[in-house]
Amino acid sequence: MDEKKAAILGEIPRLRRYARSLLRDRDSADDLVQDCLERALVRLDNWQTGESPRRWLFTIMHHLFIDQMRKVNRRGEAAMLPLEASEAQAAPAEQVESIASREIIDALQAMSPDRRAALVMVAIEGFSYAEAATILGVPAGTLMSRIARGRDELRGLLDDAARRRAIRIVEK
């Protein structure tokens, strides 16, 4: 039991990083991790010996994230999020982000949750296509197209942000 808990504890930093890339707000991200840990501990017996704790925990967290996105969509809150989240939503003082980081975080938030999750899972968290497809519960082909479209969309969003920045500089 203790070894399981220790393994879970060791995954928290990565769960937090994944949550932060899914949800911009730091507290909302930690809330997601908290929900994930609570569910994991209740289901400790479901964790098969030999199964990677990382894959198990990421799967639990992904389900929670999808549930949350569905609820948000029903309430219509996602549509209200401004495209340039950084301007409407001041980052907390301790969170010093470079312009590049802020732009990329904003761009990630502007993507559809499905593409965002697929891209982050592979590009940041380093899961293989097979692992990521299992965690997200989609066929490998779907995962690949989400990654390809996600990268393309991210590139376009970053280009837009760079153009807006250039215009603002010119206007000054």
Binding site: R17, S21, I104, R151, L154, R155
Partner: peptide
């Protein structure tokens, strides 16, 4: 872009 993504987090 991937390097920037990783750096941001």
């Amino acid at each position: 872009d991937r390097a920037a993504l990783r750096a941001a987090f």
